[in-house]
Nucleic acid binder design. Sequence first.
DNA 1: ACTGAAATGGCGCGACC
DNA 2: GGTCGCGCCATTTCAGT
Lengths: 167, 167
Amino acid sequence: MSKETSDLLQDRYVRHMIDVVQREGRITVQALAESVGLSAPPCWRRLRDIEESGLIVRYAAILDRKKVGLHCCMFTQVSLEKHSENVVAEFERAVRATPEILECWVITGDADYLLKIYMPDPTAFDRFLARFMLKINGVRQMKTAVALREVKNETRLQLPGAGTELA
Amino acid sequence: MSKETSDLLQDRYVRHMIDVVQREGRITVQALAESVGLSAPPCWRRLRDIEESGLIVRYAAILDRKKVGLHCCMFTQVSLEKHSENVVAEFERAVRATPEILECWVITGDADYLLKIYMPDPTAFDRFLARFMLKINGVRQMKTAVALREVKNETRLQLPGAGTELA
DNA sequence: ACTGAAATGGCGCGACC
DNA sequence: GGTCGCGCCATTTCAGT
């Protein structure tokens, strides 16, 4: 039986380790142990427990999107025609199968969904939309905001009780 | 002198490796080599080149946000009073210094910025906004959409020329 | 120039205190 | 939680293509 995340998060070493591996996912256990002030074995055991608990979903290499040619980020709000089981299921299946769509959230407000989409350029986005609309039934309306600049784009989460830097 | 990313991306092994490390950031060089059909040394050299080129910005452990107590995702659109150098700089500095704000983009449309914010719960968001507004000058308006459900949340980028799954 | 075999030194992982 | 040790892995060297 694997440990509960709530138990794990009581441990100050665990909290520190999580902080480090969020920034340096490929750090060695030895270096991680040293940076939190432990010897390697207890550090390794904690990392194993953290992984088994599902707190760490996966490790990922984070790419420079511009260096792979994805210069354009779009936020598209989507409204569906009707919210029948089928329309919703088909739309979400298509979203999940489309790698250009990085995020999709059901949101409050005028639209049903908010999508974050990466594209090489606006022309590609135009072609993408045409293709996506063809494939998907039941999309009533789409409204897109173009990202002009990336101010911040993080994956690191703040652990509860750590306090914000806003003092 | 390190290699250019455009040169690296010509190599089919490199492209395959990038695909793998985006999903398994902590994979061993040996396993990576095997999965792309190389022996360890050339695979290791490629990984080194990819890292030196800046194509991989960092490696990150991706956490389950709900397991660390961040149950709530908000998308807040922010408009500033005036777009003077100072107001913009101060706002963006505050955004960058605030770990609850994961993303911040300058966007087209009615608002100036779109923020993605993780919070433990709506009450915490209310307190957060009050605190953030106090600290920051020049915010004219904020409009928040609450995320009701997470359909997709990826970090993996599609390499150009790979073709979408939308066939 | 780039590959893979071999060598070596360091690290992950487990046993034990 | 730390010490020890085995075996695997990262990294270098080198010879072959």
